Each structure stands twice: as C-alpha cells, then as structure tokens.
Computed example of a mutant assay.
Amino acid sequence: MSDEIAKFESKRSIEERLSEEDLAILHRELCRSYYEHQYSRVAKLEEQSLRMTSMVLTLTTAFLSLGYTYFKSIESTIDSLLGIISLIVIAISLNTFAILFNGRTEGFTDVHKLRAKEIINKFSVEIFDLDKSMPFPPASAIWTRYRIVRAIHWVLIAISILLLPVSYFDVVSDWFISAKSL
C-alpha cells in the first residue's frame, strides 16, 4: 500500500513541477499517442480480417474443386455423394465463420475509430473540425469493404449449396449410365 502512495505522490509532484506549457505538450503527446494507438489497432484488425477472408476463399476453392473432382471419381455412389456433401458443409461452415468474424471485426474497428475521433475532439477541436469537413464516403454506402467481403462469402455459400443438386445429378447420372451399360 505504501508503494502505491509513493507512486501517486511522485506522479503528483512531477505534475506540480511542470509548467503549463510543459503540461500542454504532455497532453498533446498523450493525445497523439492515443490516436496513433487506436488506428494501429484498426490496421491490425483489418489485416486479421483480410487474412481470414483470404484463407477461407483459398480453402473453399480448394475443397470444392479438388474434393469434387476426387469424390466424383469414386465408384460408390453413396460414398461419392457423402464426400461431396461433407465438402459442401465444410465450405458453408468456413464461409459462415468468416462472415461472423468480419462482422465482429467491423464492430471493433468502428469503436477504435470513434475513440480516435473523440480524443481529437477533446484535445484539438480545430483538427476535429478539419477532419469532419472532409469526410470519407458514408458508412451507409451500399458497397463498403466489409459488405463486399460479406457478399463474396455469401456467393461462395450459394455456389456450395447449388453444387449439391448438380453433384447429385452428376453422380447419379454417371451411376445410371454405368449400370445401364452392364
């Protein structure tokens, strides 16, 4: 407990020894540091989101194309269909997870951006007004980056679902043709 009191007294004595100009510089530097930290977090979150999307797109494409080719070559119709269905379920699950992950990431990046704007508003109204006078396209725009990524994942989910009847008729017709030739 006495260590905490000593730290508090030490901090208070430092602030008392600083001039008003030094305190203003200190506050400005803290503001700048906090602002940079918030946008550093935004950059890291967006990088994670991009990595997740890239990984899921790659895995989905690989699973559906290579897996479909492999399972179609299996002689047993049931095994072939079960293999294709399992790949479709995996593809849908991966893309659903990516949609949820990107949605959650978007919420966190919005919070960090709001914190950065608030710190500017609190410590430098001129910069805040300048920032406000030159806005980016509104977040309610139809095609934001997060919405484009979500749309890509939804398209892959739709392709996966559409692959189910196509694969069924493809595998069953191959089986039916081979059974007829016997």
Rank of each mutant, 00 (worst) to 15 (best):
Y39E: 13
K44Y: 11
I159N: 00
A91E: 00
D22I: 13
K7F: 01
S93N: 11
A141P: 01
E4I: 07
L100V: 09
R51I: 15
V42I: 10
T69S: 15
S65D: 07
I152G: 00
L57R: 00
F8E: 11
I5K: 09
T105G: 01
A98M: 02
M1V: 11
F101A: 07
S178F: 13
L64K: 02
E106S: 05
F101C: 04
S181F: 11
P137H: 08
F71K: 01
R147W: 08
M134G: 03
S33Q: 14
S86L: 14
K7P: 00
A116G: 08
S73D: 15
R17Q: 06
G103R: 10
V125Q: 14
Q48I: 01
M52T: 10
L50R: 02
R147P: 00
S167K: 05
D170S: 07
G67P: 00
T60V: 05
L82F: 07
L94E: 03
I119L: 13
L182D: 07
L50M: 12
R32S: 14
M55E: 14
L57T: 03
F123W: 10
Y39Q: 03
A62T: 09
L82A: 13
Y146M: 06
W154V: 15
S10W: 02
T96K: 05
I148H: 04
R12N: 07
C31L: 13
I88V: 09
R12Y: 14
S173T: 09
E29P: 06
I152M: 05
T58G: 12
H112G: 01
T69F: 09
I74K: 04
E75W: 06
N102G: 05
I90L: 14
G83C: 02
I92Q: 01
G107K: 14
F63I: 04
V56Y: 01
L100E: 13
E21L: 12
E15G: 09
W154R: 13
Y146K: 11
L94Q: 04
S33D: 13
S54F: 11
Q48W: 05
S167E: 02
S65H: 09
V89R: 03
K113T: 11
L182W: 15
S65F: 06
T96V: 14
A62K: 02
Y35M: 10
F63T: 03
R12G: 01
V89K: 03
S86Y: 13
H27I: 10
E29T: 07
E118K: 05
V155A: 13
S40Q: 12
L162S: 12
L82N: 10
T105A: 05
N95D: 10
M52W: 02
L162Q: 08
F97G: 11
K72L: 09
R41A: 08
L59H: 02
N121G: 15
K180I: 14
F108C: 05
S40G: 12
H112P: 00
F101Q: 02
V89S: 09
R51C: 06
L18M: 11
S73N: 07
L82S: 10
I85V: 06
V89T: 02
